[in-house]
């Protein structure tokens, strides 16, 4: 099996975020970036499938120069090579524009399977993988919690998460795009040997022309939606914050829960 994994690099969700001076997005200076959580699970799933079937994994990411760090981590974990869509024209796209560029890169080669996370932890459109599938004319499934490749590799048995604690078990023809949900597996850690080997693995940087794309059709220019500003939600009606050291705060809280809220 040849498996492509689309990964996004996103701000560390644990990081303290600040809105940029111009208000248009968060301030990315000094911000830590990590591989999007569900994409990490997608990569682990791809590595397991390739190891079992004797194939290879190719990691693909769209983003600025810093994205190379995420791709290198993918290579250190076991991917054979990386593709970086780094032209400025690719950046700032919605799910449709980003999916179009990724699909062009994937369509240049022959893959049996494309895996990606179900949703990015930054903009969270949750549709990029399905757009890739649409361009390739392949079936897709979102929120995938299990993948079993059938003998012969023509079909996969897929577990898809539904609402209210139910899973749907599906049989889907390959090639296909599966958008993996966090928790499908336990991602491995990179070994020192893997990190050293990653340095020699190839990283391609295809241009717009090589992918047959127009700058107007991708990135921000090719998007139907535009984020004009971000702000912290108004928390006026929020919690009464109880100050003091842990002992004091705990005592005040217990008093309030007993006397004010009357729940203890």
């Amino acid at each position: 099996m040849r498996v492509a994994v689309c990964m996004k690099q996103v701000p560390d969700t644990e990081a303290r975020l600040r809105v940029h001076r111009d208000g248009s997005w968060i301030d990315e200076e000094d911000l830590a970036f990590v591989i999007n959580e569900s994409d990490e699970y997608a990569l682990e799933e791809a590595l397991r499938i390739a190891e079992k079937s004797g194939g290879e994994v190719v990691v693909i990411s769209l983003g600025p120069e810093r994205v190379k760090e995420a791709l290198r981590k993918g290579l250190a974990l076991g991917a054979a090579r990386a593709i970086h869509l780094k032209d400025e024209a690719f950046l700032g796209g919605d799910a449709l524009a980003t999916g179009k560029a990724l699909a062009a890169a994937i369509g240049k080669e022959e893959f049996d399977l494309v895996l990606t996370g179900s949703q990015s932890d930054d903009v969270g459109y949750g549709g990029t993988g399905s757009v890739v599938a649409g361009h390739l004319g392949w079936p897709h499934a979102w929120l995938v919690m299990g993948i079993e490749i059938e003998e012969g590799g023509a079909h996969a048995k897929v577990t898809r998460e539904m609402e209210s604690g139910l899973n749907e078990i599906l049989r889907i023809a390959l090639p296909a795009v599966f958008e993996v949900q966090a928790g499908i597996n336990h991602p491995r850690y990179a070994s020192l040997k893997g990190i050293m080997k990653a340095k020699r693995k190839p990283m391609a940087e295809p241009t717009l022309e090589e992918l047959g794309l127009n700058p107007e059709g991708v990135g921000s220019a090719g998007s139907r939606i535009e984020v004009v500003s971000v702000a912290f939600p108004e928390s006026g009606a929020g919690a009464e914050i109880i100050e003091g050291d842990p002992e004091e705060a705990a005592q005040v809280l217990v008093d309030k829960l007993r006397k004010e809220a009357k729940v203890l």
């Binding site: 903009v123 969270g124 139907r224 939606i225 535009e226 004009v228 500003s229 702000a231 912290f232």
Partner: peptide, 18 residues
């Protein structure tokens, strides 16, 4: 719409036709 795990709210404009 919420972004960054609901930590922030983004204001989004639609453009183009269709």
């Amino acid at each position: 719409r919420p972004v960054l795990g609901g930590k922030l709210v983004a204001k989004v404009r639609v453009r183009g036709e269709g």
